[in-house]
Nucleic acid binder design. Structure first.
Length: 236
DNA sequence: ACAGTCAATGGGTCCA
DNA sequence: TGGACCCATTGACTGT
């Protein structure tokens, strides 16, 4: 740090995040890979601090930030085997007639283990209905699940899986939004930090160069980081 | 050919 | 202990 040895320096600025480096590297990696983030940074927000020069590293920031926690899940009982999903239904509801086609290729063979996993695609109608339900409740009670499954001619397990995947997608989108917000925040704070450091340097050189009577008494000059104004001058 | 999407799977955790 | 959920991953399919 540049000003580490200056005496009487009451103004020193710091900028950082909790686990700043780790987050950034992970975010970069995430963006490169276009992969969903696995980092847990919900509790982190950027912060600008004032203190001694040596103390303005990442270590002096610690703020908890608990955002967008999922609502507590409903937990009634339901019992379904997921082993039968591979054996798909033979026919689909009316939407089957939809030109959009129903499944890419439903497997005909019901032999256990022998059939490779086939990709099922939900119809537009099914997806829309599921989407509508998701807007109302992002978790389903077993009753709702059954009703929806029956209505869509799907297995309850499929509805359940769809909701799980949908929640994951929502979470990922939110994470990306938060990520972008943090980046911008960090950028702003970095610029702010630079600006204030520069200002501080100027004030110090003024103090050293200027005549004695021009010197400001210690502790009368404090920089408010939020409003960016010099405050605390109680003379007069 | 390759990347992206998404239904499905398997493992881990939590809780009644 | 079983069921519900989350999470990471797989694999079929699609779009370029």
């Amino acid at each position: 740090m540049i000003f580490g040895n200056l005496r009487n320096s009451s103004l020193v600025l710091g900028l950082g995040y909790n686990n700043d480096q780790e987050i950034c590297s992970q975010l970069d990696h995430m963006q490169q890979q276009k992969k969903k983030p696995s980092l847990k940074y919900d509790h982190l927000i950027p912060c600008l601090t004032l203190g001694l020069p040596e103390e303005t590293s990442q270590s002096d920031i610690k703020i908890d930030h608990d955002m967008h926690r999922q609502p507590s899940p409903l937990s009634p009982v339901s019992s379904f085997s997921n082993s039968s999903i591979k054996k798909e239904r033979e026919s689909v509801c009316g939407e089957e007639l939809d030109a959009e086609r129903v499944f890419s290729r439903v497997c005909d063979d019901d032999e256990e283990g022998a059939s490779p996993r086939k990709k099922l695609r939900l119809t537009k109608g099914q997806s829309a209905t599921l989407e509508d339900s998701f807007k109302e409740y992002n978790t389903l009670s077993p009753k709702q699940k059954h009703a929806l499954a029956e209505r869509l001619n799907l297995k309850p397990r499929q509805v359940e899986v769809w909701f799980q995947n949908r929640r994951a997608r929502t979470k990922m989108k939110q994470t990306e939004v938060d990520c972008e917000l943090l980046r911008k925040c960090r950028q702003n704070l970095t610029e702010e930090n630079k600006r204030l450091q520069k200002e501080l340097q100027e004030l110090k050189s003024l103090k050293l160069a200027g005549p004695l009577h021009m010197q400001l008494p210690k502790a009368t000059l404090t920089m408010c980081p939020s409003c960016q104004k010099v405050a605390g001058d109680r003379r007069r």
